[in-house]
Simulated scan of single mutants.
Amino acid sequence: MGIGGSVDFKRWPLGHFAELGAEISACRQGTLFICGSIAEEEEALNLQKMIFQRGGAAEVVTRLSIQEAFAFMKEGDLYIGNDTSLLNIAGSFGTSAIGLFGTTPPLTYVPAIHPVLSPNPVLKGKEAMTAISPQSVLSYLRQNQLVGFI
């Protein structure tokens, strides 16, 4: 899961990530990673605690070089996150990538990026991102049978 974002209005709420992360932990074997930059490490650690409090588990990855980030995204089964460079990296390698798009237009240049849009196109900024529910992301995963979510 990629929690970062160049601007605040492109960032999904941590509570939504926590709910989604706990659900994914319960549904899938493997390791759930919380990805971000070193500047987002405290936020990532807080999210890790939130997921743990909901019965899930996650590892924090915030200290990768650019080369390591590329290798990491290439090896993943699924990426879920904001409209950021990590989303683009994952999708470019063919890793299934769920992009959370509130106000910004969805990326469509590679088929591996799957946009989940705000359900209310009238909303703008942070409100548009908040309107994307964890349940809608899970529904998208199940409907599209991405990495075994059925």
Rank of each mutant, 00 (worst) to 15 (best):
R28T: 02
N120P: 15
I150H: 13
F101Q: 04
G91H: 13
L64E: 14
M1I: 14
A22P: 07
E41A: 12
V116A: 06
I132W: 03
V7L: 02
T84I: 10
T62D: 11
F52R: 14
S96I: 15
T31I: 14
V116I: 14
T130S: 12
F70A: 15
V60L: 08
G99Y: 07
M50R: 09
L14K: 00
E127W: 09
L45M: 08
V7K: 07
E43N: 08
F52Q: 07
T104I: 15
M73R: 08
E41V: 00
R54Y: 02
Q48Y: 01
G4Q: 15
E75G: 05
M1Q: 12
I113D: 05
G2C: 01
P106Q: 04
I150S: 14
R63D: 13
A18N: 12
G15F: 01
T84M: 03
A26D: 10
Q53V: 10
G4F: 14
A22K: 05
L47Q: 09
T62M: 09
Q135P: 05
I113W: 04
G91N: 10
L14H: 08
Q29K: 14
E68S: 07
G91Q: 09
Q145I: 01
A58H: 02
Q145Y: 00
P115S: 03
F33G: 04
L32H: 05
K74V: 12
S118N: 00
N82F: 12
G2K: 04
F33H: 08
H16E: 05
A26S: 11
L138C: 05
I24E: 04
Y79N: 08
G81Y: 07
A128D: 08
A112F: 15
I80A: 04
P121R: 07
H114F: 03
E42Y: 15
T103Q: 10
C27M: 13
Q143V: 07
P13C: 08
E41G: 00
G15V: 07
A44P: 15
G91M: 14
K49Y: 12
P106K: 03
D83E: 01
A57L: 05
L123C: 06
A90L: 02
V60R: 09
P119S: 14
H114Y: 00
F70L: 15
I150P: 15
F9R: 10
C35F: 04
F72R: 08
P134Y: 03
P115Q: 06
R28E: 08
S25F: 02
K124D: 06
M50S: 01
G91R: 06
G55K: 03
F101A: 00
G36M: 14
P115K: 01
G148P: 15
D8Y: 05
E23D: 12
P115N: 03
F72D: 01
V110D: 01
I113A: 06
I38E: 08
E75S: 09
L117A: 01
L117W: 00
A90H: 01
N46D: 15
E40D: 14
P106R: 06
I34N: 04
M50A: 09
S96E: 11
P134H: 00
T62E: 01
Y109W: 12
T84V: 06
